[in-house]
Amino acid sequence: MNQQTKFLTSSKKLRWVKPKENIPDLLPDSVDQKAMEVLAFYEKDEKEFQNHWVWKEMGCSPETFFKQVENYVESLNIPKLQWAEAYQKAKQVSRIRALEKHKLTNTHPFKLMGALRV
């Protein structure tokens, strides 16, 4: 049995017994695990993004499309300040929607702060 899954059954209830450690406590592996899962999640999403049908439909790669959008925006001659304001507002709306999806708004403020730091 793995050392981390050992339980002592001296009482009726199972209770967790911390294994004896000679080495001082390191921070939990669960954080690493979570980070690796997030990276795998991102890689999967990135693959889906690169192979998204919209690029085939548009007949260009994402990078070409981004360049075209950039050129198009420049061609609109929108005042910089007005564009920046509208852009910031759109980003905020998008972020709030994404946070709502993850229900982060109800979690610890520390986590929320982290998510909002983008």
Binding site: V31, D32, K34, A35, R97, A98, V118
Partner: peptide, 15 residues
């Protein structure tokens, strides 16, 4: 790392 993980998930959804 925890913060970065949260941010990645959020931005993936935004994208």
């Amino acid at each position: 790392s925890e913060m970065a993980s949260l941010q990645i998930q959020t931005v993936v959804d935004q994208r």
